[in-house]
Design a binder for these strands. Structure first.
Lengths: 221, 221
DNA sequence: CTATCATTCAATCATTCCATTGAATGACGA
DNA sequence: TCGTCATTCAATGGAATGATTGAATGATAG
């Protein structure tokens, strides 16, 4: 609450709005309110959340000037403050969708209508590794690999996949993994390997899920 | 990192982007990067911030897909990921500016070309109060009033200004204050009072600044 | 190979945010 | 006036965020 110069004050005002948009529940609430005004209870029911929680999020949105409240008897109906809210929502979404779109593009470009775009499950991978049937590569940057990786995995950062594959046994199947189901890196690695004639598949998800499943993790150092 | 349904995952992805925009420094960084690529050091110098701080914020922006990094010798140049970032920034800004615009609108609509739109300074207010020449009203909600207000102020939440003024001495000048220089409430209160024939002025800023100036504060309870 | 410089990492502490619970408020109907 | 119901407030604890410091990394120049 100290004295700020006008420029900082402006950026702070903008940040208040963006911060209010920075929560999945609030975004979902905005999308519902875009359909029309809703009472707190109605919103809570739609989202399957406790009423008090929704009430607090609504007030956060109201403080940011994103929604407005109107009392009607014992109900308070909330609605979007104006059309600019929807364009802000859409703009944020389009930034976010660029990355998801990237996944889509890669999947569709390289895998659609091909033999086997089915990912390898964690159980399946463990069996394959135990029998020595596949080479497992971790295509994340070296630092992330060092922090923890699947035992037996080789670190081949995405940029080095092509070079690595030149020296690799072309007949041996490769399984690639990265940060998680939404991460593009393992998609790209598999695409690159396949285009070079290697048999390659993806692990269904990435390191965080592996660790979360209570499976063993190897750490460098 | 637990398993989410696809819908939640989407909203979370959107929230990551919005959250990355939710910091004044990052917004300022984006505006600079909109001019063209910048090294970490160059940005830090522009914003007068420690390099490490800027580096961390840049990585937050990169994780959200808002900026991209490109190494060039021993410099890393950051730039905006694509044009959609700028439209998201603009959209957030336009939501935020609605409120600032509201201040402008009110100021221009009610005060321009009128006698006395000059706000009351803190020193002036203290003198007026000491001599008993004005009634001081705090137009914030009751809870904020209770947490601390200017000694001698009466709490008249914005919605009750009209009703309150009916019983007030119409010849006595009123001074209104609220949360701060950017807050619309005291503007609205003064506008309402003037339209009802009362003499009314605004305190130059609000409670936080009053407290920050080391002036006495009265607390309820 | 070593020194240097841009950048990033790691660790700390203070602050803020979030979900949950139970109590308080405010308006309506009997 | 009293009970009921929608909403909000208040308080708690746990998690994430932000600023700062100093050390580590990675690339270039000598």
């Amino acid at each position: 609450m100290s004295i700020r110069n006008p420029k900082q004050a402006l950026y702070e005002q903008f940040a208040v709005v963006a911060k209010a948009l920075g929560h999945p529940l609030r975004l979902e609430m905005i999308e519902h309110l875009a359909q029309g005004a809703r009472s707190v209870e109605a919103l809570a029911a739609k989202l399957g959340q406790p009423v008090a929680n929704i009430s607090q999020h609504l007030q956060a949105l109201r403080r940011a000037g994103i929604v407005v409240a109107e009392r009607d008897g014992k109900f308070v109906h909330y609605s979007l403050a104006d059309a600019s809210v929807l364009s802000a929502f859409a703009a944020v979404r389009s930034v976010a969708e660029r990355q998801l779109a990237e996944v889509d593009r890669i999947v569709r470009g390289y895998f659609d209508a091909r033999d086997d775009m089915r990912p390898v499950s964690r159980d399946e991978l463990q069996a394959l590794m135990r029998d020595g049937l596949v080479t497992l590569i971790d295509v994340r940057p070296a630092d992330e690999f060092a922090l923890g990786h699947v035992p037996g995995a080789i670190n081949v950062p995405l940029g080095q996949v092509k070079a690595w594959s030149a020296d690799a046994d072309a007949c041996r199947e490769v399984v690639a993994y990265c940060r998680g189901p939404w991460c593009v890196m393992s998609f790209e690695a598999v695409a690159a390997l396949r285009s070079l004639g290697h048999a390659a598949r993806r692990l269904e998800d990435g390191m965080p899920e592996w660790k979360a499943a209570g499976l063993p993790v190897e750490v460098v150092g």
